[in-house]
Structures are given as C-alpha cells and as structure tokens.
Design a protein around this nucleic acid. Sequence first.
DNA 1: ATGAAAGCGCTAACAC
DNA 2: GTGTTAGCGCTTTCAT
Lengths: 331, 331
Amino acid sequence: MSSRPTMHDVARLAGVSIKTVSRVVNQEPRVDPDTRSRVQEAIDELGFRRNEQARSLRPGQSTALIGLVTGDLSNPFYSSIARGIEEVAHEHGHLLLTASSEEQPGRERQVIGAFLQHNVAGLVVVPTPQAHLQLTPEALRGIPVVAVDRPIGPTGTFDSVVLNNRVGAHAAVTHLLRDGHTRVAMIDGDPAVYTGRERTAGYLEALAEAGLASDPALILQGYHGDRQAEAAMHLLLDMATRPTAVFVTNNRIALGALKALHARRRSLALASFDDFELAGILPTPMTLVSYDAVEMGRQAARRLFGRIERRGGAPADIIIPVKLHLPEETN
Amino acid sequence: MSSRPTMHDVARLAGVSIKTVSRVVNQEPRVDPDTRSRVQEAIDELGFRRNEQARSLRPGQSTALIGLVTGDLSNPFYSSIARGIEEVAHEHGHLLLTASSEEQPGRERQVIGAFLQHNVAGLVVVPTPQAHLQLTPEALRGIPVVAVDRPIGPTGTFDSVVLNNRVGAHAAVTHLLRDGHTRVAMIDGDPAVYTGRERTAGYLEALAEAGLASDPALILQGYHGDRQAEAAMHLLLDMATRPTAVFVTNNRIALGALKALHARRRSLALASFDDFELAGILPTPMTLVSYDAVEMGRQAARRLFGRIERRGGAPADIIIPVKLHLPEETN
DNA sequence: ATGAAAGCGCTAACAC
DNA sequence: GTGTTAGCGCTTTCAT
C-alpha cells in the first residue's frame, strides 16, 4: 500500500535530477544514452508511471480525456458509437469518459458540466433538443464539440455526424412502392426527434415522387417504444381498408410491429430503419435500412481530434451512408 | 476563448481570499453568510467551475474517476453492465472511463495502465484469463478492483460479480429433459471461457441427475460466433440419430443455430443462455435463461464504492440470479 | 470568520 | 547534456 513513486523518487534512485527523468519519460532527444538507461532502470524498478493529473495541470497541456454523452449507453446503437470513438481515442492516446443523459436536458447539462470540470479535451454528444443551451461558447471556452446522430441546435455552429436518414427512408419506401404496394402506412415515435422527422420526410418524398397522395390515416406518430408501437400496428390491422405495407422509423417500433403481427398471425410487407440480426429468420419479410454505427463513432472522433489538434475549417455535417437490404436477400 | 476562471479570479472579484472561495465551493460551515453569498455571486458571474484535476492533485483526494475494462463495449451485454456502473458512479459523484480489451491480455494491460496513470479511484474489469498478471498489488497500490462476469485468476483475491451460470444451465437442460427429450445436444464456444465452462458443467449435472449418460458426440465445443455455431448445428442435423433438443451456451451461438434450422426448414427444442427479444416470434420454441445485466453492473459498482470508501471485509463472490423462460410463456 | 504560505507531481524557462 | 526554479489550481496547516 506504499504511495506511488514520483519522478522525484526515480531521480533519487538514478542519481539524476527530476528534469532528466522528465526528459526520459517524455522521450526528449537530448539525453545521454547512459543516463537514459540508468533512469529507465530506476523507472522499471520502482514501477513508476507518470501522473497524468499532474502533467495536465500545466497550461497548454490537455488532459488526454474526451467525453461522450449519449441517451443511454445500454442501447446498442449508442454503445456501438462509443466503441468507434474509443477506438480512435486510443489511437490518439486519449481515454474516453462516458455518461448517459437519459434524453433529459437537465441530466445532459449536469454531465457536460462534470466533463468540463475534468478538463476534457473535447466532447462528443448525442444531443437532446436543448443541448445548444449548455454548449455555449462561454461554457466551452474553446473545447471542441461534435454532435452525433442529431445536429445540435441551429445548424452551422457545430460539426455533426448523422445518418443519411432521408435517403434511407426514401429508398425503403420506394422499394415497397415498386413492389406494387399503394397503401403504405408509417409508424414513428416522438415527432420531436430529428431522426424520426427526417425519416418521415423521406417517406413522404417517396410517396410524392410516385404520385401518391399521403393518407393521414396511415401516418401514425408518437408511438415510442415497442409497447406503443405494438398498439399502433394493431390499429392499422383494425382498419377497414388495411395497408399492405408498413414503414417503421426504428427497430424498437419494428419489434412492436412484429409482435402485433405475430399475435394476430398475420403478415405484411414491413420496412424498417436499423438492422435486425434475426430478420432473415422471421416469418415477416423485411426491408431494412442498415448502417455502420461503429464507423459513425469513428468519424465523429476523427473530426473531434481534428479540432483538438487545431485543424480548422467551417463546421461540417458528415453524412454516414445507409444500405438497403431487400427481403429476398435476407431470407 | 478566454481561459477558464480560477478561484483566484473569483476571490479578486468578491474581494476575499482564495481560501474563502475554497470554503464556499466545498460547502464548509464556518463562513459568514454575507461573504458566502458575495462569493457565490462572483462564482456565478464568472461561470467558475472547480478544476477537478487540480483538486485531486493533493494527496488523499481521490480523482472521482473509475475505470471499466470490457471485451468490447459494442456488445450489448457489456454496455448494459457499463450502464449500471455509470448509474451508481453518478450517485457517488464519480465519472466512468471505459475501454475495450478486445479480450487480448496485451490490450488489457495497456488500458489498465492508462487508467492507473489517470489515478482512477477504482476499477471494474471483465477479465481476460491473464488479468491477474496485470493486477498485482504493486501495480494497484491499494486501488480496489471488482471483477464482473468472470472471476480474476485464483479465487479469493478479488471481489467478483458473476451470473448463476451453473444453475441456469442446469434448469434449462432439466426443463428439456422433463419434456421427454433424451438426446439433448450442447454447443459451446471457447472452452477456455469461464462462463462457457460453468454452463457446460450445469448441462452435465442436469444429465447426470436425470440418470442419463452424456454422449460425447452430442457435445460440441469450440464453436464461437454465429458462423461457427451455424456449422455446428448443421453437424448435429446431419447425424444419423439426431438430437431432439439442443442447449447452447450463449446468444451468439443461438443465432447461428437458428440460422441453420431456418436454412434446413427444420425445428427442434432449443434452449439458450441470454435473452432474445424476438424469441416469442420465432418459429423455433426457445427456453431461455435470462438475467439483468444492468443490475450486474450496479452490484459491481456498489461493491467497488464500498472498497473505495474503505469498507472492508473479505473478497466476496456476488451471484446474480438468473430466470428461466419457458417457450409456452413467450409464444 | 478569514487569510498567508506551503506543496501536491509535473513541465517549461532558463541557466550552466 | 543536465540541473534549478517557478508555477499550474487547488487544499491544508497554522496564524490572526
């Protein structure tokens, strides 16, 4: 339980000054090879590790820490992003702090504050709609921020990495229409969420392009989570003239929809955003819009380190491509 | 881009000494209410935040940081654990650092080293088999460690939080046997992994208890990942006298098994560790051993903070209960 | 109730 | 090539 060794301890053991130890530790060039190896021996013998806390106290020395705020780390989408960020952070010798906002602006404010107190070198945020309120220039003081999955507040102030939501939804719905479906319903969650809005827009665009009027009765919004989505699907199945195909805006909703179909022993053409490992095995044919969430994290982190290293340029919106999987391929 | 305000700045603005500011920030009692509010105003005006880095430089002051090492954060099992830890860490005013070992001892050593350099107050580790080599008392210097999912090295040296693997496997297999199955096969991944070993043991115990000899031909080991598991299931289906039921030790293997069954349009009784959201919808009836991974993380974190706060006692093995889901319930 | 001064472990100037 | 010194922002004696 002895306290950890300092450069001072190493210096004493090696019979040199603390500065020489610092030089060796930081791989500075102008050190005599003999001295260097003597110091290195002392370091090994004591098991010395530089105290990062102390190092980064000096002005200009960043903390080698970056922070990530997501809605809920246990969500595989977010944890995949975290994984990608972690990977790039590691390449840059940085460690990753994670915290969940639970999609609540209050929590978000709190965790961003905590990150700033720990002097993170940068922040990746899956922002709540109020995120721009906490991420003011005064609070940030030059600490770079990259938004993931959703942009932050007014466009053009922060870098962002988002999916090609509109195009993905458009492609999925267009596929259904090409298959001959004319009554294509849609189920979305909270209409306040950026991704849902974009995907809804893609759905509408596809209908319009095909010369179909969108039927308000077939557009169900505000059904978040699988339970509510299940109810929504039941509503659709209860209709006098049922839709023959349904586009749902995420995998939680898809799950609920599948449950409802299963309960009623029915099937129809289903299209969804987000991949489904078991899709190929299900009795319901699914058209899926998939993407690489880990890569999303990597891109965000790369952008962040670009900013941390003071590579400038205007804030950019990085678009992650999506891929359409047709049911014929998966089954 | 002005540099962040320090206690010094606050002190000057409030017309007091830096120590008084420190007292206010730390909520120490003996401060004049007037002075306190004057200081508070200055803090608010400047947007002052205490620098955690500097605070924790003083000896005895911990970093308010804990570290988590998992195999791969993008794995939902691990990220659920991370979520539970995060939750408890937040309650204790700590932040969570995460890193992935990729199940490689070298990476594990590296990230643990990095965490120690950042003066984490404690560590939660999903250990590789070699973890005990990095987690020596000399390297740790009193920093507490809790193992999750698998114990670390020789038992009795570290606290651990693990699932009731044996009992879960036993219960699942016993259920199959009670249903009248006599040829129950098993597919496992890497036999070096603790959880797989325990689950295999539970399988064997259940057979023995039922008075059945275990048939080596029905025990397939070393099939990690869904691809290899798929092949394993094909092997079973190719047998002259096929098993009528199969127990698989995790959900990756279950996925492969399901794919094989689907490809050959066959069905048999399948039992698996780990839950499956879509289990109720699949054509194959599944017996599932489920558990609360988030709670696992919470328990580990609680234990860790017990140690950080110097509450002693011998290292304990905390067992997380599992639950059996029969196919009748889910379908 | 408040303040002055020392020092945590490290790095950056600036000697020598 | 190596050492001395100052100081990062904070907390902690110890005075007052």
